[in-house]
Amino acid sequence: MIQYNISALNTEKAEALQHKIDLKTKPLGSLGKLEEMAKHIGCIQNTLSPALKKPVIMVFAADHGIALDGVSPYPQEVTWQMVANFMNGGAAINVFAKQHDIDIRIIDAGVNYDFDKSSGVLNAKIAYGTKSYLNESAMSSEEFEKAMKRGGDLVERIHSEGSNIIGFGEMGIANTSSAAIILHLLSNIELSACVGRGTGWDDEGLQRKYEILGRALSKYRGGNTAEEVLTYFGGFEIVMIAGAMLKAAELKMCIMVDGFIITSALLAASKMNPNILDYCIFTHKSQEKGHQLMLDQLKAKPLLDMGMRLGEGTGAAVAFPLIQSAVNFLNEMASFDEAGVSNAE
């Protein structure tokens, strides 16, 4: 198993950062969460003048064998079709990333399709989708290890290009089913509370999805470690994201956490190394049932609650300007002395 050397958050500059924040031309605490975030990012980067350099959102795509067993209203081929849409610039993540000058990378972690080499899709394919965990393990332990490592290697490359803030998105028909089971097994929460409508089930479809996942769980004889759960019930994109997040934390990058699927990868990663949470910025609360339960498990307070549940990394992209605002006020806003403004007694 790959080991990640993730340091606990360095707080030696926390007091000085708070002092710098408090001396800005504003009432104490009046910028609320922006102040907390500025201090957090300053501690991650161990500086009084943090900078967000070359933001990237990595969108990992993969297919799930369970999709063929009726847990999603959409056919499996929508995964590769949406990847093509990403590459053509037509998806929501393209629009928001372009708006905020965020570089996006699209990674084939295990799509049941061969993309043209000229398409621009990064080929990290483990296999042509996972097996159906209704009958057997989604992947082998070797495939799990390979996916973890590939995720980390991709982040290391992006870090070497100068990026110090990264977000993650995903595309994979039926991946809300994996995320629900990950939440259920790693948090010991009733399955019924974890399973949501995904890409849009009605009540009847939701009940069928719940029953199929219940059958899959009834056959599971493994343990409740993150590694075992991800190997049996995960997707290649979820495992790759877990490995990518752990490497990003090891490299002391700021990690923008998106919605339900991405948080399931983080929940698993945090069981492998709890220090990862020191480097996370939770960007939004998804409308997908179960996400609030995940956030509660991680004691996380997201920046936004916009009623979103699209995935793709869209929550991270939409929240990025707020993160930028936290850094900008810390670096650019005048202090009382600089502005010649009288401070409170």
Rank of each mutant, 00 (worst) to 15 (best):
1 M>S: 11
9 L>C: 02
9 L>F: 05
10 N>M: 05
11 T>I: 13
12 E>W: 06
15 E>Q: 14
19 H>M: 07
26 K>N: 09
29 G>R: 14
33 K>A: 12
34 L>W: 00
38 A>G: 15
46 N>F: 04
46 N>G: 01
50 P>M: 04
51 A>K: 15
54 K>G: 00
59 V>H: 03
60 F>E: 02
73 P>A: 13
73 P>L: 12
73 P>C: 12
79 T>S: 05
80 W>P: 00
84 A>K: 15
85 N>A: 14
89 G>R: 04
89 G>H: 08
90 G>E: 08
90 G>D: 09
92 A>G: 13
92 A>V: 12
92 A>P: 07
95 V>W: 02
95 V>S: 09
100 H>V: 02
108 D>S: 07
114 D>N: 13
114 D>G: 01
116 D>V: 07
119 S>A: 10
121 V>Y: 08
121 V>C: 05
123 N>I: 06
124 A>R: 15
129 G>P: 10
131 K>G: 00
138 A>N: 03
140 S>E: 12
144 F>Q: 07
150 R>M: 11
152 G>E: 06
156 E>S: 14
156 E>C: 06
157 R>S: 12
167 G>V: 06
173 I>E: 02
174 A>Y: 10
176 T>N: 09
181 I>F: 01
182 I>T: 11
188 N>M: 08
198 G>D: 09
209 K>I: 07
214 G>M: 02
219 K>Q: 14
220 Y>A: 10
220 Y>I: 09
225 T>D: 12
227 E>N: 13
232 Y>L: 08
237 E>H: 12
239 V>N: 05
240 M>Y: 00
241 I>D: 12
241 I>G: 03
241 I>W: 07
243 G>F: 01
243 G>C: 03
247 K>D: 03
251 L>A: 09
252 K>H: 15
255 I>R: 09
268 A>S: 12
268 A>N: 11
272 M>S: 02
276 I>H: 06
284 H>Y: 04
288 E>H: 03
290 G>C: 06
299 K>D: 10
302 P>H: 11
306 M>D: 00
308 M>R: 12
311 G>P: 05
313 G>H: 12
314 T>I: 05
327 V>H: 04
329 F>A: 10
330 L>Q: 07
335 S>E: 03
336 F>T: 08
344 A>V: 09
